[in-house]
Amino acid sequence: MNISSFTSDERALLEPNNDIMTTALVVVGFVVFASILSNTYFAFSDNSKALENYEQAVMIAADIASYPPLQGSRPGIICAKALDNIANPLIEPQEHYLFFQRFSPNIEFYVEASTDDGSHQWTIEQRPYSCEGRNVIAASVPVVIELGSNARCVTGTITVKIIYQRWK
């Protein structure tokens, strides 16, 4: 296509509608701008909420790692026997109840504790939760777990998983 076909074309087919086309371009540009702006805001808002929820999960994980009934022979060491008791409400229903009693009933979360070698795992949950169609925020803290009566200590993690309604 030759540019002279435009410069030498004097039929002026487009000229009477220049203002309409310009306005249409402005409208399209504005719509695109508003769309980008709103998408950026919603992405920022979602990330902020995710960060808030992560901080909440970290706080609960740290709290559980220092929960007095879970402490072993020395402070800062988690007792595997205590984890056994709390993870199984049939063994120690009161310990299991008091473990979750401190937290608001509005928060749905469960706790997973495991040794780093994967040989021991515990799941502490108030009731079975369904994660289908929901978001899960997880935070872990490293701990030392005291296994058995021989006071064998291994490294492990305590993970708190908070379940939220999916963000929309």
Binding site: P16, I20, T23, A24, V26, V27, A34, L37
Partner: peptide, 27 residues
């Protein structure tokens, strides 16, 4: 004389401008 053409295009322009101004104000 193309009066209808002129009136229609200018009305469209006025309406579009008003919508853009309202949208900017709301933003």
């Amino acid at each position: 004389n193309a009066w209808a053409d002129l009136i229609l295009s200018k009305t469209a322009l006025i309406v579009a401008s008003a919508i853009i101004l309202v949208a900017l104000y709301n933003l």
